[in-house]
Structure formats: structure tokens, C-alpha cells
Simulated assay, not measured.
Amino acid sequence: MSASNQNWPSLRSVGLDGVLVSFGGSLSEPANRAALAFRAAVDRAGFAGVVETAPSLVSCYVRYEPLEVDPQELRTQLQGLMDGRDWYAAPLPQGRRLWRIPTVYGGALAPQLAEAAGLAGMSEIDAITALSSARVRVQTIGFAPGMPYLGALPQAWDIPRQTDLTPNVPAGGLCVAIRQLVLFPVATQTGWRQVGQTAIRLFDPTSDTPFVLRPGDEVQFPAIDLDTLDTLRDDPLGGAISEELP
């Protein structure tokens, strides 16, 4: 995919106070990279009237105050920024972090590991090795407050979601489907298969920075045993550590 593609990127209005700049019709690494990089560039540009920006898997949403800015003028500014470089080859934003989040795989806490491993053509042991060593990017935050969509996993993990819902995956549950991982901040039902359990609390509404993970961060989920997980439950980060990426 490249910026010369005849359909992408695209710019369109959303409601009365939004603009959506999209870099693809489906998820890909270049399109996600472009969305993250473009969002950072809009924030740096400081266009008048812009009150919020947010990336999705392949798009950047820009919300503005319509009483403070001419919408067409803002669209022209965004178009100029969009046309100014190849966003698919742009570097990822500065300030990203690499997180390592301790995870128990399988067993009573993650009962669908065997099923997911089978769909991926692996034994449970090989699946744990693959998932615990994978380094994935936070592609976007969505569905629930602070909930990351992480990818992309190797092709073997292009497994479908379930046709039926799992009634309850607890907070901190790590689930897999379609070459992505999701980590739940709250207990919820889901069609994704739970393969692991962490003790991290992803959302703190009392904090000035309520989301632990941010789009563009990278994450690994090293394997631990159940006893170790129990010792981490009193830690809001569940034993997670992070370092700034270059």
C-alpha cells in the first residue's frame, strides 16, 4: 500500500463537527502506521478550532469547534497535510513505550487456549511460546475504556472469532482472533477466545492519564505461573514494566 493508491488516503466529513482521514479500507501495518503518524502530525500542527484527535485502526478522527473555525478551511489544511508526505512510510510517533505485562496462559483462568492453539495449528506449549514472545503494537483503543487492540500476530493466528459469545471474560483477560490480541479492562462477554489472564488495571477514571496503554505503544506478554499472578493482584499495573522506545 502506498500514498499513491487511487482510493487512499481519503478525507470525509463526520457529522457536524468532525473530519475522518482514512488510510485504508481494512487493517494493515502501513495503514495503521499512517493513522498513528498522521494523528501525531495534526496534534503538532495545532490547527485552530481542533479540540480532539483520535486514531482508529486505519483512520484519524479530528473533531473541531464549528463556531471557531471555517470547516472548509480546516479540511483544506488537513488535505494539505495529508498530501505533504507518504504517511505509509512515516515514522511512528515519539513518546511510545514498550510494555511487558505478566500473563498466565491456559488453565482455569484462560480455558480457550487449547481451542485457539488448535485453530492456529499449534500445540498448547507452542502457542504459549508464540504468544508470550510476540511483540505487538497497540493499534487503537476502543470498545471499552482503555481497551487495546494489539497486533499483528503471525499469519497462523488469523483465526475467526467464535459464532457464540463467551458469557464473561474477566478484567485483565487476554483474548485472540484475526491476528490480533485484545486485553479487557472490565469483565465482558466476547466472541474472542481467552488465552491468558493478567492482573493489570488498564483504566483508572481518577487519574489525569486514565488509560495505561496508548496507541503506538508496543506490548509483550511474558508467561508466569498462577502463584506469581496472585502476588501481583495488589499492584495496579499487575507487575507490568515499561521503557521508552527510541
Rank of each mutant, 00 (worst) to 15 (best):
A35H: 02
R135T: 14
R75M: 14
M1T: 09
S28A: 10
W8Y: 14
L27G: 01
D86M: 10
P170Y: 02
G121S: 10
Y64N: 05
G172M: 05
Q189C: 11
L213C: 09
S132N: 08
E243Y: 03
A45S: 15
G46W: 02
R233K: 14
L113R: 01
D227Q: 14
S22G: 00
V176P: 00
G196M: 05
P145E: 03
R33P: 08
D17Q: 13
Q79E: 15
Q77V: 08
A152E: 14
S13W: 12
S132M: 08
L36V: 09
G80V: 05
Q112A: 05
A177F: 03
D70N: 14
L153H: 04
Q189G: 15
D208M: 09
P205M: 07
F211G: 00
A177W: 01
G18F: 06
V51T: 15
V58T: 15
G151A: 06
I101F: 08
P246Y: 09
W87Q: 06
L229C: 08
D204Y: 08
V182N: 02
R75W: 05
G239V: 10
R137W: 00
W192F: 09
S4I: 13
L16N: 12
A127E: 02
V51K: 13
V104Y: 08
P66C: 07
G18E: 02
Q194K: 12
F184M: 09
L174G: 11
V138D: 03
Y88L: 14
T103W: 08
G142N: 10
R33C: 06
P71W: 06
P91K: 06
Q197G: 03
L119A: 11
L226G: 00
A223G: 07
F184K: 00
G239N: 11
G107Y: 05
S123P: 07
V50E: 04
T231L: 10
L16H: 12
A90M: 11
V104C: 13
A40K: 01
A108I: 12
F184A: 12
E52F: 11
Q77S: 15
Q112P: 00
L81I: 06
G46P: 03
Q139T: 00
R96G: 02
I241S: 14
R193I: 01
P167W: 03
S132W: 07
L213D: 03
I200W: 01
F143T: 04
E65R: 13
P30Q: 11
A48T: 15
Y61L: 15
A187W: 04
L213T: 11
D225Q: 06
T188W: 03
R100Q: 15
G15S: 08
R161L: 10
P160S: 07
A199E: 06
S22H: 07
D83T: 07
G80E: 13
P148R: 04
L226P: 00
